[in-house]
Design a binder for these strands. Structure first.
Length: 296
DNA sequence: CATAGATCCTGTATGC
DNA sequence: TGCATACAGGATCTAT
């Protein structure tokens, strides 16, 4: 899915283009993206018709649109979700799942506009969060993200260092730190010269602090470039892609030389996807080396 | 509670 | 050409 930088690009676009608009009509074209909504597709559409969007907020990879009465539309893009603002007359996207007609006309085109939720794989979704304008209760378990001014660096470092899981899995644990996904986890680990299978409790305090700093930095840099894109799936509300994929050092670079030492980048299976790392700069922890050589 | 693995879904790329 | 397999920026549920 889009990770924090990509979701923030979408949030900023929503803030600019749909805040203040009233929802004139809602059409749900597929049930799955509204599966979290208790009253189903018809209830979702009925609940939102006529209501006004008052803001656009984000925590980690979750987005929500506060309504002016204290409720909110809560959304997650999953692996392939998009939020697009389109003229009503724009052709319907192949994977259009939900469309919100907005009142008023676009001053540039003189036409009506729609907010469209497009999602090929449908791991993402939308729901109405009762009383969720401030922070939807459904995502109370999601930690703050490292771009949040109130993120507690010291508390994160302390918790990380009590855990026995590999540090990559911990970076992906949205209850510990949110917003980090597979790409930026690999990039932060490469920058920190740490192997993803090193247990959290075997990091020094300094290593943990440095790793957090790199995670924050890589996401800030990606955000400044409009996010990372490999294909047309990762776009802002205007359908435009970012350029950060040109700056990646590890992710997706199997067999290419490490930008620091020239050793070929390796890819290994991890949680039904892949991890990329430099086997020289990011040396495996003792336990992993022992397992691999059969000498454990 | 912490951990590791399976699962939801559709599309594309690759190999036989 | 058809068919099978692997893989994809994620979260959640499950058993242990």
């Amino acid at each position: 899915m889009p990770e924090l930088p990509e979701v923030e690009v979408v949030r900023a676009g929503l803030e600019r283009h749909v805040v203040g608009a009233t929802i004139a009509a809602v059409e749900v074209l597929h049930d799955r993206p509204v599966r979290r909504h208790p009253t189903g597709a018809s209830g979702f559409a009925a609940a939102l018709t006529g209501r006004r969007i008052a803001g656009a907020r984000r925590r980690g990879k979750y987005l929500w649109l506060p309504l002016d009465d204290g409720d909110a539309i809560l959304g997650h893009l999953g692996m392939s979700g998009q939020m697009l603002v389109q003229p009503t007359s724009a052709p319907v996207e192949r994977h259009l799942r939900v469309r919100f007609a907005l009142t008023g006309t676009d001053p540039r085109t003189g036409q009506g506009r729609e907010l469209r939720f497009v999602d090929q794989r449908m791991f993402g979704g939308l729901s109405v969060s009762v009383g969720g304008a401030g922070l939807p209760p459904e995502i109370a378990h999601i930690a703050r993200d490292p771009l949040d001014p109130e993120f507690d660096d010291a508390a994160f470092v302390a918790r990380l260092r009590t855990r026995t899981s590999g540090v990559k899995r911990l970076l992906l644990d949205q209850g510990l730190i949110s917003g980090v996904g597979n790409i930026y986890a690999d990039e932060a680990l490469w920058r920190a010269r740490l192997h993803g299978e090193r247990p959290g409790n075997r990091l020094t305090r300094a290593q943990a602090v440095e790793l957090l700093g790199h995670a924050r930095a890589v996401m800030n840099e990606a955000l400044a470039q409009g996010g990372t894109s490999f294909d047309a799936l990762y776009v802002n509300v205007n359908g435009e892609s970012g350029y950060f994929d040109r700056s990646l050092h590890a992710y997706g670079r199997e067999a290419e030389p490490c930008d620091r030492c020239g050793t070929p980048i390796r890819r290994v299976a991890f949680m039904n996807r892949s991890s990329y790392f430099c086997p020289r700069c990011q040396s495996a922890p003792r336990s992993v080396r022992a397992t691999r050589t059969g000498s454990a």
